[in-house]
Simulated scan of single mutants.
Amino acid sequence: MRVVVIGGTGHIGTYLVPSLVKAGHAVAVVSRGSRRPYRDDPAWRDVEMVTCDREAAEQDGQFGTVIGQLRPDAVVDLTCFTTAQARQLVDALDGQHVVHTGSAWSYGPSAIVPTTEDAPKHPHGEYGINKLAVEQYLMGEQGRVRASVVHPGHISGPGWLPIGPAGNLDPGVIDSLRADGSCLLPDRGGETIHHVHAEDVAGLHQACLGQPDAAAGQSFNSVCTQAFTLRGYAEVVARHFGHEPRLQFVPWDEFVSRVDPEHVEVTLDHIGRAPLHSMEKARTILGFLPKHDVTDTVLEAIDAWVGANRS
């Protein structure tokens, strides 16, 4: 196929684009041209790179035209966040398969776990609400396009710091666990956070492309087959760096008083949703299972971050 990947130099595209090329597809990547992939791969030499500022082109009403002129058989949209963006894309296509990157945030707080794709959705926050609206729009446009939606959890991998054991992106949490195994956690550390390796998110997008009849009209969770509790995550990281865990559990109000407000907000975003999702649908319909387990996913990302930032 000729596959157009929108936003193909980010976390997911770094793995997806070379894999598509190696599978024999002709690939065009549409991006602003301001970012290099996180990993080098000779396959990028065979990729058609198209420089386009999506936001500017959408404001001029030209973004759909840019994509349509590339004459894709399928489109992978990794950077769509609103229904207005999705509508411009759909209006430029004629029945092609569109694989859209949604988000586990579109579910809202976990209720019955593991959360399956048919669970009622009650998102809060602009990002999750918009991602649900895009999914609903695309599923209502079956016929004009053949749409599939992939809902990643906390995307992780070498090149960036993953959501950490305190449910935020505070590098000091990792530094403390490296230094002596210590970590401050809210309450009893029982909330879940659900990571996924960027390579597995890419793999599920590719699985949708490879089985369009099965994937069209469907949404799929994209997470590791297991999730961490905050406590379990902190223990794994402490021991990874050779320490017995020294965890301190404090009531939420005390946690708030001792942690930077920016990090507190991110923690609350994560533990307030306590994501824990099922991968059974992807396995049953597409035969897809993640390659990376949750421990390897976070430790690979942390080790790469430490090597780049703390050496």
Rank of each mutant, 00 (worst) to 15 (best):
V237K: 02
L93A: 09
V256I: 13
D46Y: 10
G13M: 00
G108V: 03
R2H: 14
Q136K: 11
G8V: 00
E265Q: 13
I129Y: 04
V76D: 01
R178S: 06
L268V: 11
P158E: 10
S219Q: 12
T82H: 03
V196C: 06
R87L: 12
V76W: 03
R246T: 05
Q248S: 14
G125Y: 08
E235T: 01
H122C: 06
G95W: 06
H292E: 15
D260P: 02
L70P: 01
G68S: 08
D77C: 02
Q248K: 12
A214R: 15
Y233L: 06
N130W: 00
R2W: 10
V173S: 09
H11D: 07
A57K: 09
H197Y: 11
D94E: 12
V30M: 02
Q218P: 08
D46I: 00
P186V: 11
L93V: 08
L177G: 07
W160V: 04
A56V: 13
K281D: 02
R273L: 15
G167K: 07
L247D: 13
G157S: 11
D260I: 01
D46L: 03
P109W: 01
R87T: 14
G128R: 02
V99R: 08
D260V: 01
R310N: 11
A238W: 00
W305P: 03
S31N: 15
T229W: 01
Q59F: 09
S257F: 00
V4S: 05
L276C: 12
L268E: 15
S110W: 09
S311G: 13
D170I: 09
G203R: 00
A308Y: 04
D41C: 00
Y137H: 10
Y127A: 07
R246I: 02
Y38D: 01
D303M: 01
S103I: 03
L138H: 05
L268N: 10
P123K: 10
D53Y: 04
T101S: 12
S34L: 14
G242T: 08
T115Y: 03
D91H: 11
H195Y: 14
C224S: 15
S34E: 12
L16D: 02
A274S: 15
V201H: 06
D187H: 08
A147G: 07
Q226K: 11
A179S: 14
P251G: 02
P261F: 07
G95C: 08
Y15E: 00
I129C: 09
P152F: 03
G232S: 09
W160H: 12
Q62R: 15
I302P: 06
A198V: 01
L289M: 10
K121E: 10
A26V: 08
R2Q: 12
K291E: 13
G125S: 11
P212S: 06
G153Y: 10
V4R: 04
T82C: 05
A104G: 13
F228W: 10
D269R: 11
P72S: 07
P18H: 02
D269H: 09
T9M: 04
R35A: 11
V306M: 07
Q96E: 15
